[in-house]
Amino acid sequence: MNWNFTAGNFSLRLPLTEQDGDALYELMSAQSRVDHLPRLAMSVEAQALDELRRVAMRFETREAAFWLVEGLFDKQLVARVGIYKINWMQLSAQLQWELADAVDLPLMLEVIPPLLNFAFDELNLHRLEMRLRAGSQRHEALLQGLGFTFEGVLPAQLEYEDQSVDLAVWSYLSSDRC
């Protein structure tokens, strides 16, 4: 199975630990890009290397897969998108993304549908869900524009910076495709 593919004017490829650390650090060192997860932004470059190694291990066990989204021509990293907590019994997984500031709905409409098709057709999954900090307006607007369905808010799912964080749940089913 080929895990790398193109989506419109973008390529989605699995990261390489040896070469993608700098670009990933650049993407994930701004707090605004990871607030919706929520997690702390990277503050030293070694964290990007560590993240790539962890992701590689999770991919080896087919527990997760993360892709770097790059322009086909300029090779600029615009996002990282991943599925994790892949449950092969339930045919479900959770979706996560970190987006560069310029990413908007038209770009996501190029990238995400092919990713969903890959998850449903190649991996045979049935349900993808995203859990993100409730009130993450930019991301929830993108999810809505992409056709995801809001399912509710799970209270107090994370203890983060002395706060209990509620997570909104959005989902997309294989049967949601037209």
Binding site: Q90, H126, R127, L154
Partner: peptide
Amino acid sequence: LAATLRDGWRTGESSFADVLQ
């Protein structure tokens, strides 16, 4: 009730049930 997870539980080869959390 916090959320309704559509087809969140697999009941058969290609059948699913909603989960009320």
